[in-house]
Amino acid sequence: KRLSEREFDPDIHCGVIDLDTKKPCTRSLTCKTHSLTQRRAVQGRRKRFDVLLAEHKNKTR
């Protein structure tokens, strides 16, 4: 699936709103397109961004 077609989940996706499409970014939490500050500011996550990021990195090892 293309990035734009993915169902957005704030707990596994970057989530920064794309200015062109007005939709949240569906790249992983480790997205290189958006800064850490931008990704931390995303609302609606179950846990703090840093906790989710650490969990994500542990899963992908």
Results as ranks from 00 to 15, higher is better:
26 T>S: 09
19 L>K: 14
5 E>L: 12
12 I>N: 14
13 H>N: 08
2 R>V: 15
59 K>C: 15
51 V>S: 14
52 L>P: 02
10 P>F: 10
47 K>H: 08
15 G>I: 00
12 I>H: 15
37 T>A: 14
37 T>M: 14
50 D>V: 03
42 V>A: 02
3 L>E: 13
37 T>I: 09
48 R>H: 15
31 C>N: 01
14 C>N: 00
25 C>N: 03
37 T>C: 13
12 I>Q: 14
38 Q>P: 01
30 T>S: 08
3 L>F: 08
29 L>R: 01
29 L>F: 06
39 R>Y: 00
4 S>L: 06
32 K>S: 11
52 L>Q: 04
45 R>D: 02
2 R>N: 15
7 E>N: 13
34 H>S: 00
56 H>E: 14
12 I>L: 12
51 V>D: 09
23 K>M: 13
16 V>Q: 02
5 E>T: 14
11 D>W: 03
12 I>P: 01
52 L>S: 04
5 E>S: 12
4 S>Y: 08
48 R>Q: 14
30 T>H: 05
23 K>H: 07
44 G>T: 04
11 D>I: 04
21 T>N: 09
58 N>T: 14
60 T>E: 15
37 T>P: 11
7 E>A: 13
47 K>E: 14
43 Q>K: 13
50 D>C: 04
14 C>W: 00
61 R>A: 12
13 H>F: 05
4 S>E: 15
16 V>D: 00
50 D>K: 01
4 S>D: 14
55 E>S: 06
56 H>D: 10
6 R>T: 14
52 L>C: 05
12 I>Y: 12
51 V>T: 10
29 L>A: 01
20 D>H: 10
18 D>V: 07
35 S>K: 05
61 R>T: 15
32 K>G: 14
48 R>T: 15
52 L>D: 03
9 D>H: 09
8 F>T: 03
17 I>A: 08
24 P>V: 07
56 H>R: 09
29 L>S: 01
39 R>D: 02
34 H>F: 00
48 R>V: 15
51 V>H: 11
40 R>N: 05
61 R>Y: 10
57 K>C: 09
33 T>C: 09
48 R>E: 15
38 Q>S: 10
2 R>F: 15
17 I>G: 05
60 T>S: 10
20 D>K: 06
24 P>Y: 04
28 S>F: 13
61 R>W: 15
36 L>T: 07
55 E>P: 03
59 K>I: 15
18 D>W: 05
3 L>I: 13
51 V>E: 15
54 A>C: 09
30 T>G: 09
14 C>A: 00
54 A>E: 14
61 R>G: 15
8 F>I: 06
13 H>M: 13
59 K>S: 14
21 T>S: 14
42 V>Y: 02
32 K>Q: 06
24 P>R: 08
5 E>Q: 12
44 G>N: 05
50 D>I: 02
57 K>P: 04
12 I>V: 10
35 S>R: 03
8 F>V: 09
8 F>S: 03
7 E>F: 13
35 S>M: 04
26 T>K: 14
33 T>M: 13
50 D>Y: 02
54 A>K: 10
8 F>P: 03
47 K>P: 02
25 C>A: 01
44 G>S: 05
48 R>M: 12
44 G>C: 03
15 G>E: 00
24 P>T: 05
43 Q>I: 06
56 H>I: 07
34 H>E: 00
7 E>D: 11
19 L>S: 13
41 A>Y: 05
46 R>C: 10
49 F>A: 03
9 D>N: 15
40 R>W: 06
3 L>W: 03
58 N>Y: 05
17 I>Y: 10
3 L>Y: 12
45 R>A: 02
31 C>H: 02
15 G>A: 08
30 T>M: 08
16 V>K: 01
29 L>Y: 02
46 R>L: 09
31 C>S: 00
14 C>S: 00
50 D>W: 02
14 C>T: 00
36 L>N: 05
43 Q>A: 14
39 R>F: 00
56 H>S: 07
42 V>W: 01
29 L>N: 01
23 K>C: 13
6 R>V: 15
19 L>A: 13
20 D>E: 12
53 L>M: 07
48 R>D: 15
15 G>R: 01
31 C>T: 00
26 T>W: 06
49 F>Y: 05
5 E>F: 10
54 A>T: 12
58 N>M: 14
37 T>S: 13
20 D>C: 07
3 L>N: 10
60 T>I: 07
41 A>R: 12
16 V>M: 01
27 R>W: 09
42 V>S: 01
24 P>S: 05
50 D>F: 02
16 V>R: 00
43 Q>M: 10
61 R>F: 12
23 K>L: 11
12 I>C: 15
9 D>P: 02
3 L>S: 11
7 E>P: 10
60 T>D: 14
5 E>M: 11
27 R>A: 12
58 N>K: 13
5 E>W: 07
52 L>A: 07
57 K>M: 14
55 E>C: 04
32 K>D: 15
9 D>E: 08
4 S>T: 13
8 F>H: 04
26 T>H: 06
21 T>C: 07
26 T>N: 08
23 K>Y: 04
8 F>E: 02
25 C>H: 01
58 N>H: 09
46 R>S: 14
29 L>H: 02
17 I>D: 02
45 R>N: 03
3 L>V: 11
36 L>C: 05
30 T>R: 08
32 K>P: 10
44 G>H: 02
19 L>H: 09
29 L>K: 02
10 P>V: 09
11 D>E: 13
61 R>D: 14
7 E>T: 11
53 L>D: 03
26 T>D: 06
32 K>M: 07
28 S>H: 10
58 N>L: 12
16 V>Y: 03
38 Q>D: 13
26 T>F: 07
49 F>L: 13
27 R>Q: 15
50 D>S: 06
37 T>N: 04
10 P>E: 03
42 V>T: 02
51 V>A: 11
11 D>F: 03
53 L>C: 06
61 R>L: 15
42 V>L: 04
53 L>Y: 07
45 R>I: 00
61 R>N: 11
38 Q>K: 06
10 P>N: 04
33 T>V: 11
20 D>R: 06
50 D>L: 03
4 S>W: 03
59 K>Q: 13
59 K>G: 14
35 S>D: 09
40 R>M: 11
27 R>N: 13
23 K>T: 10
15 G>M: 06
55 E>F: 03
29 L>P: 02
21 T>E: 12
2 R>K: 15
39 R>L: 04
37 T>W: 08
